Amino acid sequence: MSVASAQRPTRILVDLDRLAGNLEAIRAHVRVPVMAIVKANAYGHGLVPVARRLEACGVDRFGVAFLEEGVALRRAGVRAPILVLGGIYGPQVAQFLAHDLEITVSSVDKLRQVEAAAESAGRRAAVHLKIDTGMERIGVHHDSAGPFVEAAVASRWCEVKGIYSHLACADDPASPMTAVQLARFLDACAHFDRLGAPMPLRHLANSGGVLHFPETHLDLVRPGIVLYGVLPAPASRPTIPVRPALSLVSRVVYFKVVRAGRPVSYGATWAPPADTRVVTVPIGYGDGFPRALSSRGRVLIGGRAYPIVGRVCMDQFMVDIGSDSAWNEDEVVLIGRQGEAEIRVEALAETAGLIPYEILVGLNERVPREY
């Protein structure tokens, strides 16, 4: 038996060629530089393999959430500019500088923290100014941005590479909030003109902005989930021809006949009304497959969809195949295509009462990934 065949039958398959194709489709649509968002393990696809492939495709920049993600990319040899999007924690600033990571500065106090660390290290810090235009998360309020921009422009130890905000409702092309946020953001950016300072990179568009609001594309876009071929919300429109890059597959590991009335799984929440055939699949909520799919989700076996029955366990769940046949080691598709049938992340999320992001980032490192 080979090492490959002896590995766990449940695995994530990531199509890096399809990912590269999605990047090209986004570039053709927006016609401005792209910052690929690879936070949260590249939305479950694998931080380092995804970043390496995108860098080989010439992506302009990367965005991550935390210092640790940026450091992991640098240690993997990624050389493109990397912006850490999250709020900074003062004692970490020296590590940002040591690994040549761009820093989100979200207040004058944070700016002073970065200045002090940069002066101590004897090197200038690359920063992006965060403006709050409606999220109330981090960032200086748009109507108080003047002194913030002025302090950043005057800084001896900070080089302002960008200014940005985040769209709260761009997943919905009908939402009026995006126009309000864009106007607020452009008003904040105008302080650079007032000061006679060079305008840094202005970036605002997340996946929803990329898909629906070309006026938000400005100097740079930040696609996240759409880069991986998944739409961010039910209201989102597929305005770019992207394709899912991730599949989740497993194998049948047990077959049995369950007699009428005999309950299946924890809590005895489901029992067949008549004798039926049930197979067991070795993946569960311990891998990030949602327990909310208990007696609600479906999987593909032999190109047909069958229902998950009973509660999803930590490591396994059961599937009712009725009077059909399935054999041990038959492929089971949880996300992806099998024959003419397909289960998309968006549909899985809707069934589970979640959002597509939660499905993808919930798939943890217990599930091996193949590229």
Rank of each mutant, 00 (worst) to 15 (best):
R75A: 13
R123W: 08
R366V: 05
S207K: 09
L363V: 11
L54T: 06
E150F: 02
P214A: 08
G122P: 07
A36C: 13
R61E: 13
C158K: 07
R237N: 08
L19I: 01
G322R: 03
P307L: 08
G77W: 10
A42M: 00
R202S: 04
V264L: 14
A233P: 00
Y254M: 11
S155C: 02
T10R: 06
S144P: 00
I103H: 14
V242D: 10
V249E: 15
R298H: 13
V226W: 03
S295R: 02
G122M: 01
I225M: 05
Y306R: 10
G86F: 02
A76P: 10
K256P: 00
A235N: 05
A349C: 06
I103A: 11
L211H: 02
V14K: 04
Q181I: 11
A80N: 06
R369V: 09
L300P: 08
T133W: 00
R8Y: 10
E358Y: 07
A352K: 10
R27K: 12
V78A: 06
M1L: 13
V312N: 07
M318V: 13
D171H: 14
C158R: 04
W327S: 15
W270C: 08
V59A: 03
T280A: 12
T276V: 09
H45W: 01
G286P: 09
I321A: 08
M1T: 15
L204H: 05
G303H: 01
D219Y: 00
V253R: 10
Q92N: 13
Q92G: 09
L129Y: 07
I103N: 12
V93L: 15
N206M: 03
D171K: 01
Y43V: 09
P273F: 07
D60G: 10
R243K: 14
G196N: 09
Q316C: 13
Q113G: 09
R369N: 08
R243G: 01
F148A: 01
L246P: 11
L67E: 07
L220S: 02
G208V: 03
E365S: 15
V249W: 07
L54R: 01
P244D: 02
R259Y: 10
G70L: 04
R344V: 11
D287V: 03
V114T: 06
A145M: 09
G208Q: 03
V367L: 14
P147C: 05
M318S: 15
H29T: 08
A205R: 07
D172S: 02
A168M: 00
T269V: 15
G284V: 09
A341G: 00
A260E: 13
F185G: 03
V210M: 11
L204K: 03
I321N: 13
C158D: 12
E150M: 02
L182V: 00
E69R: 09
R124W: 04
V281P: 06
Q92S: 12
I12D: 04
